[in-house]
Simulated scan of single mutants.
Amino acid sequence: MRLIDDGDVWDTFVDESASGRLFHKWDFMKITQKHTGFTFLPYGVFKGNELICVFPLFQKQMHGLTVLLSPPPLQSVIPYLGFVMSRRYDTAKQSKKESMLKEVTEEIEEELAVLAPNYLAITQVPGFIDVRRFLREGYDARIHFSYVIDLSPPLPEIWNGFSSNLRTKLRKVEKSGYRFEKSTDLSTFYSTVAERFSEPDMNIPMISRSYFEDLYEAYPDELGLYYLYDADGAVTGVQATQEYKTFTLWMGAPKMTALPGNEFLQWLLLGRAKEAGFRQMENVGANNENLNLFKSKFNPSLTLFLELSRQDLFGRVARWAYSTIASKGLVKRKVLSYIE
């Protein structure tokens, strides 16, 4: 296991793997490093000269504590990251998968022993569930969920799976007149998302607008930004997407008007994703109870992803301080970046 300094090698590996996401791409990681203040450690695991795994880690020192995260803090709005296995792993029989994974996890454990973090958290992408070796090593595991809609059925069949209440709302919007637009203007998107993140129940440190500007400049084809306008030209729905392997509804704005604009915008994006040939549409946010009722009306399936964590005494004290003392307001903004 060693650090990689070639972004092209890294990105080619991510492109060819089954579980690599846009979050894993080299420029995405470099931009995240720039805006979060965490140091990007681009690890690769090799078998001879063959790269068999990439593992992005983010490191920060604070008051003598070493924190290692993958993904980095919440303000990076990366829901999952973790290590990525090679294409050969993806197509191997189970016995070969387990032997490859054993080699990789042994290398990871050796390097982590050298780095000696006080707090470590790794959240794997949805569907990658074989974390048995980490569990045997004493890691804590936490289950998270995401919503996924299968786009292989005909569009009318997908429509019929929606709740009747949702179908009624969508018909109403369609009759009232609307305009759907893919945009490069981040102004409305950032202001609405920043406002949402500043609400009392989501009072977390929102990353700067320049973070999104850098990401959209780096990935103009893989990142989308969509607005829905009513007949008077007012914005009624906002959605940021990732269009790489899976069509992902990445971030959206809260309800903006009495018109169900967000619902109709998601319906339009579902059609766009299907037309573009994507097999799935992921709608992140299944862990937020306040959003479950809204998102479940589209009749998605649940998929799970796993967070692994380990901490020593100092790491446990930091997490306790966060959960009992620094869970709200200004203190949370200062502390969350390092221990969540």
Rank of each mutant, 00 (worst) to 15 (best):
K175N: 15
Y139D: 00
R171S: 02
K175E: 12
E199M: 05
E174S: 11
E217R: 15
R209Y: 04
P220Y: 05
L186M: 06
L170V: 02
I143T: 11
I143Y: 08
N165D: 11
D201C: 11
R171L: 01
W159V: 07
A194S: 04
S208F: 05
R142Q: 09
D201Q: 14
E137H: 15
S163D: 14
D221I: 03
A141F: 09
S208Y: 08
P220D: 01
Y227G: 03
Y178I: 14
D214S: 02
I143Q: 14
E137A: 15
F212Y: 04
V173F: 03
E217D: 15
A194G: 00
S187L: 13
K172N: 10
A194L: 07
V148Q: 00
L170D: 02
F212E: 02
R142K: 13
A231Q: 05
Y147Q: 06
D221M: 01
P200C: 06
K172L: 11
E174F: 07
S152P: 04
E174A: 11
K169M: 10
I207Q: 03
A218Y: 07
R171F: 00
S191C: 02
T168A: 13
T168I: 11
D214M: 05
R167S: 03
Y147I: 07
I143P: 09
Y216M: 05
S187H: 12
R196Y: 11
I149A: 03
S183I: 13
E222Y: 09
K172C: 09
E181L: 07
D201H: 13
S210C: 11
S183M: 01
L151Q: 04
K182R: 15
P205K: 11
M202D: 04
T184W: 14
K172Y: 10
Y147S: 09
P154L: 12
L223Y: 07
Y211N: 09
L186I: 03
K172A: 14
S208P: 00
G224R: 06
S176V: 07
E222S: 06
H144Q: 14
D140C: 15
E174K: 13
L228K: 02
Y190K: 01
I204V: 09
E199H: 14
F180A: 00
F180T: 08
I204M: 01
V148C: 00
E217I: 12
F189T: 03
S198I: 11
D150R: 02
G161W: 10
S152E: 14
N165V: 09
F145A: 11
M206N: 01
G161C: 05
N160D: 08
S164V: 14
W159R: 09
G224S: 08
D221H: 09
E195K: 15
P154H: 12
M206I: 03
L225I: 06
R196T: 15
L155C: 05
R171D: 00
S210R: 15
S198C: 07
R209T: 06
Y229V: 02
F189H: 05
T192Q: 11
E222Q: 12
F180W: 06
E217C: 13
S183K: 12
S187N: 13
Y227V: 04
I204R: 01
D221G: 03
L166V: 12
Y178A: 07
S191P: 04
K175R: 15
